[in-house]
Amino acid sequence: MNDADAVTQTTTVPLNKLSVLAFACAVVALAALVFLGLSATAVFAVGCGHLALQQLSTGQQRGHLLARLALVAGYGIGIFALLSAAGLLLWR
Rank of each mutant, 00 (worst) to 15 (best):
M1R: 10
N2C: 07
D3F: 13
A4R: 15
A4G: 13
D5G: 15
D5F: 06
V7S: 13
T10H: 09
T12S: 14
V13H: 06
V13P: 07
P14G: 13
K17G: 12
K17M: 07
V20S: 10
L21P: 08
A22P: 04
A22W: 14
A24W: 05
A24C: 15
A26N: 08
A26V: 09
V27Y: 03
A29M: 04
L30G: 02
L30V: 11
A31P: 02
A31E: 14
A32R: 05
L33D: 06
F35L: 15
L38T: 01
S39T: 13
S39D: 10
A40F: 12
T41Q: 04
T41K: 03
A42P: 01
F44W: 14
F44Q: 15
F44G: 11
A45E: 02
A45V: 03
A45G: 04
V46M: 12
G47L: 05
C48Q: 15
C48I: 05
G49P: 13
G49H: 11
H50C: 06
A52Y: 11
Q54D: 15
Q54N: 14
Q55F: 08
S57F: 06
T58Y: 10
Q60D: 12
R62D: 07
G63H: 11
L65M: 05
L69T: 13
L69G: 09
A70Y: 06
A70E: 02
V72M: 01
Y75W: 07
G76V: 04
I77Y: 00
F80N: 00
A81E: 03
A81S: 07
L82Y: 00
L82P: 00
L83H: 06
L83W: 02
A86G: 13
L88Y: 06
L88S: 12
L89D: 09
L90S: 03
L90D: 01
W91Q: 04
R92M: 11
